[in-house]
């Protein structure tokens, strides 16, 4: 599909969608949202890039195999879960300290990293599907 209107608009839509994805992922700790939903929104951004610009641009937006994103996300979530074990707490125990930055107290729960891991897995799975369905995986 080649539409110059969509292509032009993507310059605005793509960064906004990604920003919204990050926003949803971050607010998920206390409100509706979270890594899974954020990941889905980011995946939508990728789908739209693929539709408007084609495979070459898609490949330059994401210049590595999606499986790395999946495994990386799983590793990040896994490490977040395992670290409490080292301190004698059960798996997945979460701490929620406040970090003081520029005079603001920012709530940084350790579950955030777990959520980011989930986000990476979701984006990775979605991107992998897009690549596959587009028939653009290296023939191997």
């Amino acid at each position: 599909m080649s539409s110059s209107i969509l292509r032009t608009a993507m310059g605005l839509i793509f960064p906004l969608t990604l920003l919204f994805a990050v926003y949803m992922a971050l607010k998920g700790h206390n409100q509706p949202g979270g890594g899974f939903i954020g990941g889905l929104i980011a995946a939508v951004a990728l789908v739209m890039v693929r539709m408007s610009h084609g495979r070459d641009v898609m490949a330059s937006v994401m210049p590595f195999h999606p499986r790395l994103l999946i495994a990386g996300g799983l590793a990040m979530a896994g490490v977040t879960g395992v670290v409490p074990l080292l301190f004698g707490h059960p798996l997945l125990t979460s701490r929620a300290p406040y970090v003081h930055l520029l005079g603001e107290a920012i709530h940084v729960p350790t579950a955030l990293f777990f959520d980011l891991g989930v986000l990476m897995v979701v984006v990775g799975v979605a991107a992998g599907m897009i690549f596959r369905l587009g028939g653009e995986v290296d023939p191997a």
Partner: peptide
């Protein structure tokens, strides 16, 4: 689980 993730890399 960890071994599975490592094997993907």
């Amino acid at each position: 689980l960890a071994a599975g993730v490592l094997n993907v890399f």
